[in-house]
Write a protein that binds this DNA or RNA. Structure first.
Length: 613
RNA sequence: CGGGACGUGGCGCAGCUUGGCAGCGCGCAGCGUUCGGGACGCUGAGGUCGUGGGUUCAAAUCCCACCGUCCCGACCA
């Protein structure tokens, strides 16, 4: 049995002998509603209030929905936590909302705990604001834009640096700093491809905080406090969120740390060392490159015919003595904001495009097309090289520094050059780390073996600097009367994504296993034999007592067979189940089942709360 | 944006090749039997077959266009 109709307003308890239960429940509910809603820092429990399943809208599905690949997608759908409205837009159902509220409150608890002040900013922003920061153009198609009746352009906020920085322009003295501002708001991003249920969507809730400081030291301190708060937050979510070095991407900024939950449903690759604590996003990760023995001196470069050869492997096969892959220069061509740019990698190394974007500061980066390359260089990919090229910028990966005796394309199809001495023969404009790390390589820190795994980004903190405060005029005077732009930091956590990450990390074949602090209910009281007055009475009493004690309790009072109730309880993932049936009740006993282990013990009915956290 | 698949009661699907009463399982409603791991019987309710156009006596089925959804890739605070 699964789909339950929502009760109409004022509808009474289900049929059956429940007058007594209503009487006993009423005072408990009223007290819970006012007594447990407000939660201070370090509150032991985040209680909401109880519910009878017979009146709840918990549309569980008996079968797996089609079109749901990721475990979190499948389970959140099947267990009745979310429903899809359209691609990238999900309705959060009551169970999901309870989890989200708990996530929300844990976040507020911890951010308030480091001095955060909560705001609520508009989701829709005037275009001018984004034009001022330059991001009206930078954000491109990823920003939802709309025109109002007056013809004014607007955007749906993807993030709120601009709005907060504009508010910060009202601060004029160092005496008002530092500040920590945050909000929990809906963000809109026109993702080209929403996927994996609630993991990658176009409309989602984010906690975004912004630190405002006079000095770099102040920023560092707030950054570190956030780092610690995030570790506490994800700890309370019950997930292992690994903090990794990251690229700050299009946001600019320096230090950047992402919090990643390991999952194959994730979309980021993370590199970790097996023997030390080095860990980084693949977009940023480095590794130790073995030194290649080069000749001290090489003769002048020399053309040689390479008919039909277009690949690193082909050249290495054809000329094994001179053109091993680590002796070749791979020349890639990119258009970086329209500038035709040569990018050189060692033949056996791969380019990490995000690194290229980070070092060039480019916004629009794409590989050049064959015809564009032929027009500029006179040859097609497979025969390209940078020797003698002076009219285009050349960026080289640092693994090529100082190399001699290299082979590269001659910018003429079917011809290559040998004896290339990079410093001597190529006008490298910029050296940088551009190489993508592979699994099994040696850690740059201690030489340990690097591992690659997929993760879900649930949080990201980074140091913004003064970019937004400068454009928005958030300038303060220090104690000497000198003006300084406020130094900002930016810190985000995705709420629904966190909910999905928790499910990814905590489920089994039967369903979700909610960690205690984020569980929609702490306990489910499962009644067997709905017709048995004694069972109903005992259930009502336990429900009232536990609710009274501050637990979130779901009373499964549905007239269903036991198998259905057990299966549903496991599916929605309530941490503890208390089963009351006529068999045990005769001797005052109930069954107590722990969802995570599925262990069941018999305990006295009046001792249930002794077994709860 | 490129490649692939799909769109038929709430969910999962068949029917389309070969045009002719819109079906099945689950779920839902009523009655009865049952009741500690997704019961059973009987009786019912529920569908613009994604949308628009075309072909035809007749379209879920054939043709065209569009829309939507999912998967892979590109993309991506």
């Amino acid at each position: 049995m699964s789909v339950q109709a929502a009760p109409g307003p004022g509808r009474k308890a289900p049929r059956g002998p429940s007058c007594r239960s209503e009487a006993s429940l009423a005072p408990a509910r009223a007290r819970v509603a006012v007594g447990h809603w407000e939660v201070g820092h370090g509150a032991p429990r985040l209680a909401l209030r109880g519910m009878r399943w017979s009146q709840a809208f918990i549309p569980t599905l008996r079968d797996d929905p089609a079109n749901a690949e990721a475990a979190s997608h499948r389970l959140l759908l099947r267990a009745g936590f979310v429903r899809q409205l359209s691609a990238g837009h999900y309705s959060i159902l009551p169970l999901g909302q309870r989890v989200r509220l708990k996530i929300d409150r844990i976040i507020r608890d911890e951010i308030d705990g480091i001095g955060g002040q909560q705001f609520h900013l508009p989701a829709m922003h005037p275009a001018e604001l984004w034009k001022k920061s330059g991001r009206w153009e930078i954000m491109g198609d990823e920003m939802f834009r709309l025109t109002d009746r007056k013809g004014s352009e607007n955007a749906l906020g993807m993030t709120h640096e601009e709005v907060f920085a504009q508010l910060a322009s009202e601060i004029s003295s160092y005496k008002q700093l530092p500040q920590l501002w945050y909000q929990i708001q809906t963000k809109f991003r026109d993702e080209p491809r929403p996927k994996s249920g609630v993991l990658r969507v176009r409309e989602f809730t984010m906690k975004d905080s912004y630190s405002l400081d006079l000095t770099q030291d102040g920023l560092d301190a707030q950054f570190d406090r956030h780092h610690a708060a995030y570790q506490r937050i994800f700890g309370r979510f019950g997930v292992d969120a690994v903090d990794v070095e990251a690229s700050s991407g299009a946001m600019g900024g320096s230090d950047s740390i992402e919090f990643m939950v390991r999952s194959d449903a994730g979309e980021d690759w993370i590199v970790t060392c097996g023997t030390c604590d080095y860990r980084a996003n693949l977009e940023r990760a480095t590794s130790r490159v073995e030194v290649i023995d080069d000749p001290d001196m090489v003769p002048d470069t020399e053309r040689f015919a390479t008919p039909g050869i277009r690949t690193i492997a082909g050249l290495a096969d054809g000329f094994p003595e001179v053109a091993a892959p680590d002796r070749q220069i791979k020349t890639l061509v990119y258009l970086i904001d329209g500038t035709f740019t040569l990018v050189m990698m060692r033949g056996d190394h791969a380019l990490q495009e995000q690194k290229l974007q980070d070092v060039t500061g480019g916004i629009d980066i794409r590989p050049a097309q064959a015809d564009e390359i032929r027009e500029q260089l006179g040859a097609l990919p497979g025969s390209l090289g940078a020797v003698g090229v002076t009219e285009h910028p050349i960026i080289a990966d640092q693994a090529l520094a100082g190399r001699r005796g290299m082979v590269t394309g001659a910018n003429e199809d079917d011809w290559h050059l040998r004896n290339v001495d990079i410093e001597r023969d190529i006008a490298v404009g910029h050296w940088a780390d551009l190489r993508e790390v592979s699994a099994g390589e040696a850690c740059a820190v201690d030489g340990g073996e690097l591992e690659l795994w997929k993760g879900i980004e649930v949080g990201h903190i980074f140091k913004l600097g003064t970019k937004y405060s400068e454009v928005m005029g958030a300038i303060v005077q220090d104690e000497n009367g000198e003006s300084h732009p406020i130094i900002m930091g930016s810190y985000g956590i995705g709420l629904e994504r966190s909910m999905a990450a928790i499910v990814e990390a905590s489920h089994d074949d039967a369903g979700i296993i909610w960690p205690w602090e984020v569980a929609p209910y702490h306990v489910i009281v499962t009644l067997l034999r709905q017709q048995d007055d004694a069972v109903v009475a005992a259930g009502d009493r336990l429900y009232a007592d536990l609710t009274d004690a501050g637990y979130d309790v779901l009373l499964d009072d549905r007239d269903e067979r036991p198998g259905v109730k057990f299966a549903d309880a496991e599916l929605i993932g309530v941490p503890y189940r208390v089963t009351i049936g006529p068999r045990g009740l005769a001797s005052g006993l109930a069954e107590f089942t722990t969802r995570s282990t599925m262990e069941t013990i018999e305990i006295p009915l009046d001792a249930v709360s002794d077994h709860l956290p």
